[in-house]
Every structure is written in C-alpha cells, then in structure tokens.
Amino acid sequence: MGKMNIIQIPDCLKDIYLFEKFILFRKKIFTDGDCVLDLSNITFIEPYSMVGLILTGREYLRNTSEKITLINIPFSVLQYLIRMNFTDTGIFNIEQKIDAKKLFKRSAFSKKVVEITEIPNKETESISRISAIIAKFRSRAQFILKYWLDDDITDYFVTVISEVCQNIFEHSLDSGYISIQTYEYNNEKSVGFVISDSGIGIDGSFEKYSKNQYGTGAELIKNVLTEPISSKRDFGYGLCRVSNIVQQFKGSIFIRSNTSSVTMISRTDPDKKNEKFFFLKNNIPEFNGTQISIILKA
C-alpha cells in the first residue's frame, strides 16, 4: 500500500442536494495516494447518494486499478449497505464485518427495496436485466408503494423504470445502476427511484445538434423533461412521459448531468391544477454521466 489519502466525509449522504458536498471532495479523492474515506460522520445514506458513491468508486477503480477503502462506517449504515448489496459490487475495500445475526433480514426488509443492480450497456444483457428488475419490482410493489393509493401506480412505475433504464444502453455509452427504496427519514415516508450512470451525459448525447435547437446544460435537461425530443430519432418519449407520470403523483425529479442539474417539483395550486416547477442550475461541480432521482412523498 502506498501513501494513504484519508478523507473525512461529512454527513452529506442523506439527501440528494447535500450529496453536492461529497462531489466537492472528488478532486481530493483523485489526487495521489490510496484513497480512504472515513464515514464515521455519516448518519444515513439515501439511495441516490449510495449509487453516487458507487459511481465514484468505480471511476477511481477504472482510473487507478485500485479500490477506495471505506472505514469507520457506523453500524446502522453498514447494515443498510450490506442489505442493499453495496458491498457485493466489489468496488470498495471494506474490512468491517457484521455478525450474521445482526444483519437486516432479507425476507422482511426486502419487500421495500430493489437492491442496487447494474444495468449493462450492451443491449441484449441490458434488456434482460431491466426485465429482471421490473419482475422484482412488480413482486414487491405492494410493499414499496404501500403508502401511495392508486390502482395503477405499479403499472405507471413499470413504465418509468423501463423508460429511464433504456436510456442507459441507448444513450450513455456506459453501464449504470438502479436502486429503489421506500424509507422514512424525519418522520416522512418517501420512495426513491435512482437510475445513474457515468456515461457521456445528456449534453454528450445531443452533441450533434446545434445549441439553438434544444439548448445546452440545464436548459437541455429541462427540454428533455418537457418535450418529446430525442438525440437518436425525430422525437422520443422517455423522459417526457416519465415527467408527466411523476407530476401526476405529485413527485419530484432531480436530474444531474455533468455540470448541470434540474429539479422538477409538482405542486397542486389553489385552483387544484397540478403544475410542474423547474429549478435549473449550471456550472456546478463536474460529475460524469447522468444521475436521476425520482422521489414520491407520502
């Protein structure tokens, strides 16, 4: 082992916006030395941050042929990471162990989650993986979506998962990850769908188009959420349809792609009209690829 580069990570993995703080550490992570992340300050990890951590670890492994070491992981956080198959990705060195008796029981806990699953960038493998994810989601949907009362909600989110996951092999030129979880934080029940990759990003996918046609950065991300545009065909349906479904369930979408992000929030106004509101950001710290978080709150 060479020189150790130990980085103390603050409690920034409990919220998609706080994860921006973690991204600021990336420069330090990729500087010389064997990277060791001290997670002792972490109180909670939500699915988007967990997948973001994996993408960072994978990039580090690709660049250096070494794994990031995670140390001082609080017991409850490690319990969760093991349950979500985070430790099975083979991307990190984790020496901490938990007594088998103290692990989350798969039978009970598994009903509320779809564990981290890799979506390959090869079409055939990817389709078979997406099908397996949807089959698992269907079998657990009554527990994952237990707080959302709509007869068709499972079918709506089958459409969401299918359309967003297809973008990975269609557009990103890299593999990605999906994870789904119902969780409670600060007495608020939420379900999070996270689909992330470290590919070429939305700007990269639309590179052949002029900036005037669909815009760039956050403006382009907003356009793919609101207009049926496609980088491969005359028009597309995926994210535009997804945003309409999320709006229908008054949820939110956060899309981060390279150095831009868009948050879409749905709210019902006093006239009972359900409207979308967009918050655009450009020139945020670089994080390769496209990371999508869809959250419904009960």
């Binding site: 079409e123 099908s131 949807i134 089959a135 269907r138 089958v158 299918s162 297809q166």
Partner: peptide, 10 residues
Amino acid sequence: VDLKDLITRP
C-alpha cells in the same frame, strides 16, 4: 419473454 410487460425498443 418471461415478463408480463412488453418493454424496450429492441
């Protein structure tokens, strides 16, 4: 195709 759904372009 084992799934009950018809999904994906391919």
